[in-house]
Design a protein around this nucleic acid. Structure first.
Lengths: 257, 257
DNA sequence: GGCAATCATTGACACCCTGTCAATACGGGA
DNA sequence: TCCCGTATTGACAGGGTGTCAATGATTGCC
């Protein structure tokens, strides 16, 4: 990760600065702000590292503090409580996910392919960044109070919106280019698909071994099949000219075999 | 709630029993077992009642004990810890859900209708028994160690299996009666659908207000649309004879508008 | 009925975690 | 060098958990 450079404000040449200075900031106050932000970042880094090796329920403030080599009290200066810190890590997770989704959309032309790629990106995300995935899942499982949201919660919701937007765009593209049936509402469908894929991937992530040994299910194959399944629904015709639902009489007839 | 009657073992008429006796048990040891079970049940009742008015994170052993009018220490005699108690409530949730699913399947003849009814039953369940739904969702979000499972965890998994079986049966019925396309594997498809519907309903349950005010989405309508969507995928043809994916050239052409 | 044994129940304790606050250390400006 | 505001910390109170020895109740036996 590369820290974002301060744009449009050139620092003095390094050979004019006292040795302890850090390049970008100019005024003292500015440097103090920068240091504060840096400290905040290092706390979030520490929390992320700890979450890489233990679950959230077991993590304590002391764990984070010792990982960051700070006193526990200091964490409360920079963050409300542990929930606040965890939300900061969660925000990183959502942002990483949004980037993956946006890249997936850009990598293809046809809308249907873009949606498929988004699904595959989410599978990869869950696999390669399990810490982030767990945090995103946890956030999705929380009931979000509409108005009464923290700044940090709002930031997560905004990043989640980027995720949704990527999917909405892909669906709109698909409708425009004819690869997705036109009777779908892009926003509504994106929401549905988000719920679907999240649900399926969460199921796979958590019940993988159980499903494998109890039902003989191959997780990767199932996910593939699941994405195919969504593809069928996206291309198929509207459900309202009802499909082949047999009459009760027909079913009774079948039952005689 | 009416306690299940002990079948096939008639108690003595109540006027022949000493006033303190409880009808069914015969031997003393048997009665002690029954009392033990009753106490366990009353603890789970208490936990369920408490969960009806506060979230799991906020609940404490003291809350459960006071609701059950027992000392906190006693809870540890009957259960390992709070997790154990909560799992017992979760088991009730899974069993209630399984009953709903089985009833939904029995209420219809055509497989596709059965699956639709199962979906609607799940929506109703989430709406009418939110405590159970939250517990089921929490259980689904936990990574289940395959072998290293508590007895109580195993019981939950068994109840979850009933849920899956109801869906598998419905899909098999649908394939047999022609209302569902025959190239689907029932078990695999049931797993997929469970993940999908759970994901969608969880999304709706938690983000309802947010989606409503940010995207103008009507939750109930979205769920309906979502079940339609699944219906399309269940009836549609196999994806492998690929749908209308436009060539890159075609897309480029479209882009010129 | 009385007594010993067994079981159910409880209060008290030690430990851990959280969140706060007064006290201390640090660094810039006069 | 000293003063002042900020950063940092140790120590504390409060509350939750899980355990254990002590107490109370019930049963089996005489």
């Amino acid at each position: 990760m590369i820290a974002k450079a301060t744009v449009g404000l050139q620092p003095a040449p390094f050979f004019l600065l006292p040795p302890s200075s850090i390049p970008p900031p100019v005024s003292i106050e500015e440097r103090q702000q920068e240091e504060k932000a840096q400290r905040r970042r290092s706390i979030v880094d520490a929390a992320e590292a700890v979450l890489g090796r233990m679950s959230m329920e077991n993590m304590t403030m002391a764990d984070i503090a010792s990982e960051a080599r700070l006193s526990r009290s200091l964490l409360y200066v920079y963050f409300e409580d542990m929930e606040d810190i965890v939300l900061a890590v969660t925000l990183r997770g959502f942002e990483a996910l949004a980037e993956q989704f946006e890249a997936a959309v850009q990598a293809h032309d046809a809308g249907l392919m873009q949606i498929r790629a988004v699904g595959e990106a989410y599978v990869r995300f869950a696999h390669e960044q399990p810490t982030y995935f767990d945090l995103v899942a946890r956030f999705e499982a929380r009931s979000a109070d509409p108005e009464a949201a923290t700044d940090r919660e709002r930031a997560c919701l905004a990043a989640a919106d980027r995720v949704m937007t990527a999917m909405t765009d892909a669906i709109q593209n698909g409708i425009d280019d004819g690869s997705i049936r036109p009777d779908l509402d892009p926003t509504e469908t994106a929401t549905m698909l988000w719920g679907y894929t999240h649900g399926l991937i969460q199921l796979m992530a958590n019940k993988e071994t159980g499903l494998k040994q109890q039902y003989g299910i191959n997780p990767d194959a199932l996910i593939d099949r699941g994405l195919d399944f969504i593809g069928v629904a996206l291309t198929g015709t509207s459900p309202h000219p009802a499909p082949n639902i047999p009459t009760e009489a027909f079913v009774a007839e079948q039952g005689k075999d």
